[in-house]
Design a protein around this nucleic acid. Structure first.
Lengths: 336, 336
DNA sequence: TTGTAAGCGTTATCAC
DNA sequence: GTGATAACGCTTACAA
């Protein structure tokens, strides 16, 4: 491989002049620039990015740390991140934590060592030292999808309380009183907030939620199990609120296995849509978030931070959610 | 940040001794090792990976270049890649090409500059200079999912010809004669092979495929459009074969919009399943590939190549596919 | 507008 | 077993 010295020698200039041509920095005469460019082409020279990084302390690399790329919600985020990063000449490393704080810490440590310029993080839990450790090192972070209380950091997310509130309100207006929530892990802000939104709507309507709140994980299996437990309640619940897409599918499978029809026997609503690319006849009533835009905006914010272009105060960007009423819910039996 | 020199000074040894302790290379006395380790802990020292890479020419980084992470088939591959790479202490950069040879070339060039240790590539087209350019640089590559004729490289994929053949055979046995194929782009091996498998089954059964082969892209829109064109044929096709999951969904939407029932009015079969996590009642008859395993095995092979542990001859690993007969196909009207 | 010198933090090579 | 030295290829700081 040709080095900057080879180019310099061929063009009859010093290495730093070549560097200036490559990076468009400093003043260079037209002729010198032309000679250098010719030499670069002749030698097929490409800068050694690692040497550059060692010297400049910049790697043009971002890290995306999320719980599971397999969840279409996060897949769409990942696509938004990569599109935005790629346009800016940045490369993206991705890691899965599977909601484990330990995995998260391990990944982040490695990423810091790799000297990524910035980190996009979907935190495994609301409370962890990870983010502070990153910030102490001076690496910019943007938190995605979830809140982390008491930590001063940029955040791009949606309002889970409001989303849950809208869904439950809809059910209440259809006459439902016994509404069960199938949520994610306690200590994850989205899981907590969706329960909070549920409770807000229930309290406002003067309804008790005794024994109707379930915490599990954001997985199909957990959704299945929680739904089965709901079915053993007495009096029966007339509606289910699934706190994410995987839980919703698991719950629907459980209902089907128990011979229950939706919405005939029981209503179901959920947080997060499934990608329209996948569904021939959308059926579930949901609140949707715009994951692709979340990925784009978070990355844009991170890039601005890296370039020192963002205002110094931390930003919290809350993107709008949308309620989409479809066919998985209906008036409760015997009600108007 | 503490450097290797700081550690060396504190431990009263030379930097290279510290390096040997970190990398477990060469002979070190127990006492020296202990002193060095203590110093490392005391200073909270972590090696500068970039400096290491500059000197050692190794980055412990793999690249995953695929067409679109948004397709669950590729998402599952990505997960397999990351799990395997992460276990080996490698980090993964991912890029989307959207089936564009230009995007692919641009990405690969950047990745070579970043000196990734190895590349996992889903090639945009069967013919391109990209792979040869990578190999000329001496970077190991493993081709994923697709064949690239006339290029000597490791490949991990499934047998598209066989998969298509099985699906079409099934339809023929149910009495279908007018079977349309909705395939991907010509020049992409999976698209070509799936048509070839179709044709093999048709020829064997002595049936003509006049005007029943359609090439498009692996997208919902394309599936929708191709299906609409099929519906304008005369005599009517009695069955559709969608060459991937996106095409299948698009086709099903088109059929629904035209008021046709599946399988009552027309049968549909497809390549690639949808993740079971997403589907409450699986309906489509499909041939499935094991994308997660493909990702794992491809990465394992790549890591072996990087470590110089693989046999020098190129390997082609063909993973088994599975035919899953469900409810989207049935006997043709008027046939036994 | 261009160049000199120094050094980023590590490891390969050779020496002891 | 351990160390001195040089080098990886680039850019920052300063000088001309």
């Amino acid at each position: 491989m040709a080095t900057i010295h080879d180019v310099a020698r061929l063009a009859g200039v010093s290495p730093i002049t070549v560097s200036r041509v490559i990076n468009n920095s400093g003043y260079i005469s037209q002729q010198t620039r032309a000679r250098v460019k010719a030499a670069i082409i002749e030698l097929g020279y490409a800068p050694n990015i690692i040497a550059r990084s060692l010297r400049s302390k910049r790697t043009n690399t971002l890290a995306l740390v999320l719980t599971d790329i397999t969840n279409p919600f996060f897949t769409a985020i990942a696509r938004g991140v990569e599109d935005t990063a790629s346009d800016a000449g940045f490369t993206v490393i991705y890691c899965n934590t599977d909601e484990s704080v330990d995995e998260e810490a391990k990944n982040l440590q490695l990423l810091m060592q790799k000297q990524v310029d910035g980190i996009l993080l979907v935190p495994a839990r609301s409370i962890s030292r990870s983010i502070e450790l990153i910030k102490e090192q001076g690496t910019p972070v943007v938190i995605l999808d979830r809140r982390v209380p008491n930590v001063d950091a940029d955040v791009v997310r949606c309002d889970s309380v409001e989303g849950a509130y809208k869904l439950i309100k809809l059910l209440i207006n259809q006459g439902h009183r016994r509404i069960a929530v199938l949520s994610g892990p306690q200590g994850v802000s989205t899981a907590d907030d969706r329960v909070a939104g549920y409770q807000k709507a229930m309290v406002e309507a003067g309804i008790s939620d005794d024994g109707l709140v379930f915490y599990g994980t954001y997985t199909l299996t957990s959704g299945y199990e929680m739904a089965k437990r709901v079915l053993s309640l007495s009096p029966q619940a007339t509606a289910l609120f699934a706190a994410n897409n995987f839980i919703a599918i698991g719950a629907l499978k459980a209902l089907r296995d128990s011979g229950l029809k939706v919405p005939g026997d029981i209503s179901v609503v959920a947080f997060d849509d499934l990608p329209s690319t996948w569904i021939v006849e959308p059926f579930l009533t949901v609140v949707t978030q715009p994951p692709y835009e979340m990925g784009c905006q978070a990355t844009q914010l991170l890039l601005n931070r890296i370039r020192g272009e963002a205002p110094s105060a931390c930003q919290e960007i809350i993107l709008p959610i949308e309620l989409i009423v479809r066919h998985s819910n209906g008036p409760v039996k015997g009600s108007g």
